[in-house]
Design a protein around this nucleic acid. Structure first.
Lengths: 193, 193
DNA sequence: CTATTAGGACTGACCGGTTAGTCCTAATAA
DNA sequence: TTATTAGGACTAACCGGTCAGTCCTAATAG
């Protein structure tokens, strides 16, 4: 049996992703968990704290599931690693019925202008994310899989921007095509001649 | 002197872009305009109607200011047209102090999962936007400025996804670099060998 | 063995404030 | 006379958050 605290965290994580942080009320979380409001505020001092905590949880989960298992899996070639990563992301969103979007992109867009804590943490994570991709690209350039006339940094910045935008398109068009087709275009463009 | 209706539209347009649609209350619009609530509801039957109307206004304004003047300006070469477009978009966000983000991307992310009217209109506009870019790319390929081994459709889809993602990064990192640097990378990648 | 204390988990009632939207009357302007 | 504007009272639902106090368990003191 999970504790109230765990139930709140799990439910809030899901709701924040599905409906956004601001658009998810404390009362909705309460309804979904059966936990009382006073109990929730016993465990978390504010909605902001809960949101920040869930952001941390998402980040470590993403680093484990998406970075370690694909982009940083050095037993595979850089090109195949990137392909696997794209495949995994696409499958993730297909499984979510093209709704929800990227939890990080959503939060960044929603909170950057109104809450510095969220913005700074997200900014830091995006930088980390970009460096993970950059290492993969750098190795791919060294192995002559990727073209060498553009810096690995520039390419990785492009990849992460495109990824976030493509997920936004997936959500708006309710189709994974922008992601699956876009990633293929990226792969072709960065391939060495 | 502008009418109440015009004042509401102008003010709401600005506020929706700055703070988001849901996060802008009717009362805030009232404060900013000096218009009374009964008057606002005399002109608009709901907040949704007001939002949809402002979306239409934004769309036609964007088509006029960004499409006609740069991407569709056939007196310039396709490559230069695309460069000018990027320059204009970057300047736009720099002028906004890297805040706000893209009005269409913001709305798409905020509303796609909860309001079909907004989602469908936005989806349609993104498609139109993509076709405008596609025509420019197509001509650039014909003129041998852009590489011909990837379809103009695929490239234009990539460009629009990347653009939206880059603007998200601009907002999160509070810097135009993701946009200015990313657009240069795109230009290099699609240039013919 | 028993009385006391400490602390974590939890409760239900309640708070002030905000939300979009309604309704009605009356004044004013084209 | 018809479209617009003003003013204000009102509603029902919702918002994040607080409060005093209860329940249970485990450690400690006499």
């Amino acid at each position: 049996m999970s504790t109230s605290k765990e139930k709140v965290i799990d439910s809030a994580q899901e709701l924040f992703h599905l409906k956004g942080f601001q658009n998810t009320s404390i009362d909705t979380i309460l309804e979904h968990t059966g936990v009382t409001k006073s109990n929730l505020y016993y465990h978390f001092k504010s909605k902001e704290e809960l949101g920040l905590l869930i952001l941390e949880k998402r980040i470590s989960e993403y680093e484990r599931r998406f970075f370690s298992e694909t982009l940083e899996n050095t037993s595979i070639s850089p090109e195949q690693r990137l392909k696997n990563y794209y495949k995994k992301v696409t499958a993730y969103h297909k499984n979510l019925d093209c709704r929800n979007g990227c939890p990080f992109g959503n939060l960044a867009l929603e909170m950057s202008d109104i809450n510095e804590k969220f913005r700074l943490r997200l900014s830091e994570f995006f930088n980390h994310w970009q460096r993970i991709i950059e290492l993969c690209i750098k190795e791919g350039i060294k192995q002559k899989q990727f073209r060498s006339d553009i810096s690995s940094k520039a390419i990785s910045q492009l990849i992460i921007s495109h990824l976030e935008g493509a997920i936004l398109m997936v959500k708006t068009h309710r189709s994974t095509i922008p992601l699956s087709s876009g990633s293929k275009t990226i792969m072709k463009l960065i391939k060495s001649a």
